[in-house]
Design a binder for these strands. Sequence first.
DNA 1: CGCAACATGTAAGCGGTTACATGATTAC
DNA 2: GTAATCATGTAACCGCTTACATGTTGCG
Lengths: 190, 190
Amino acid sequence: MSIDVKTVCLGILSLGDGSGYDLKKRFESTFGHFFQAGYGSIYPALAQLAETDLVSCCEVLEEGKPAKKIYRITESGRHELVKTLESTTPTHKIRSEFLAVLYFAELIGPAQLDRIINHRVGEMQDVLRLLDELKHDSAADQGPGPRFVRGFGETILRAALDYIETHRAELCAGHEGHEPKLQPVSRTAT
Amino acid sequence: MSIDVKTVCLGILSLGDGSGYDLKKRFESTFGHFFQAGYGSIYPALAQLAETDLVSCCEVLEEGKPAKKIYRITESGRHELVKTLESTTPTHKIRSEFLAVLYFAELIGPAQLDRIINHRVGEMQDVLRLLDELKHDSAADQGPGPRFVRGFGETILRAALDYIETHRAELCAGHEGHEPKLQPVSRTAT
DNA sequence: CGCAACATGTAAGCGGTTACATGATTAC
DNA sequence: GTAATCATGTAACCGCTTACATGTTGCG
């Protein structure tokens, strides 16, 4: 039993009812920095949860709006959630193409290196801004869990940004004076 | 074109020849903290690289040892590597069941919470120790790239450990005084 | 008129994990 | 003898990503 999209959906629903579309937004704002999920995962997950009666579902037809399906966690859903959360030893996996590329920084032209780092820095700043909004958003759940997790993300992102700005110069030290011998990449082929 | 196991294998081979078994070890020590790969990914990757002539392969039969296949990057392999590294905008993805669980900390018994956090802290300390060994290991490549990446890992891990130790107490504040109402999990079922 | 936001889904494909299968050598 | 290390691979499975498919409302 592991923590998959289904479990997290169940968890989010334990904090309040919502539609698939809703859940996606909550995923993005609150979980985006450490757990991603798209519609292609969320909708099937909700369907499965409904099938096993861990959530109930009712269709809402408002005029002037597309039809919605609001999901609500059931009692057995709450039990299952707690059981799952407690019976697992949760993982924490990083898959960083970014660091993989930087490992081979010496092979890359300085301009490309700059582009890559700037792009990543931009992404991190975006997430940081998101987390900051979250902090000042009273609507977002402010229990100990959410606060801890948000703070964790903030701390790690700041540390990473700081590290990058402090050490990025050293990366370029590798190829100073000699231009990369390779022709510029002609096309983003294959 | 993205940075997959194949590309990283090619990259590692650009720093020196090696067998699949070797590569796995280098993956673990140097890339373990941000990019995982098992035999089930590495061997097929090497086979594919050899098929497309990005690496060459020769079998080595030493007495008193199992047969080995030593792979070596080719010229076209080096070109392909640089092209791939430069033509991508590398991602950095975190998938943290750990943070997902902590987000719902209020639902979990204090003992379980403790176990989960201690386990994760242990893992992080292990990786930190590994990185420290790497730092004092002159055999490990000490170019700017490897140094940057190792330092990055170290910095983030220290920041994370520090954050956890500073804020873990606040997590338990949620359920003080009232024991969790649920029966202890009977079995790690399903 | 077109685009963004609201809203729900399906299906193919991909990459990686896990388990399986095998076998030699070395050290305890 | 038996466990650990060295050594190579295959195949099933699984979950997630991506692309596809469709339709409404409201705003500029």
